[in-house]
Amino acid sequence: MKTASPFLEIDADAARVTVRLDGADLSLPAGANLAAALLAAGVPVFRHTPVSGAPRGPFCMMGACFDCLVEVDGVTRQACLLTVEEGLEIVRAGPATAESADAS
């Protein structure tokens, strides 16, 4: 899941902690903005929309666009308004979510 990131960290000196992204361990800088940290870690897609299943990533970074929505500890949250902490459980909505919402 982690690829070469299109983003560079200017001062990558923060202590790292481990979070879980879709069940896999990921090392991110402690205390960093979660959306920025995920982008820098090479995670461009934060969710797939419930309407068409299209991929989305952070757009505004200021809490207004809601494209960086991820599920953190069971609640849908804006990643750009969260801080990286050890043990965060982050789940991204896959295209499948949209399908199951339409089912039955």
């Binding site: 419930p50 919402a101 089912a103 039955s104």
Partner: peptide, 21 residues
Amino acid sequence: TEKLPRFINRPSLIARQVDEG
């Protein structure tokens, strides 16, 4: 609410899950 995976089977006077989720 936000769109959620289907979990309510039938509507009630209190809550219903709409076709969009």
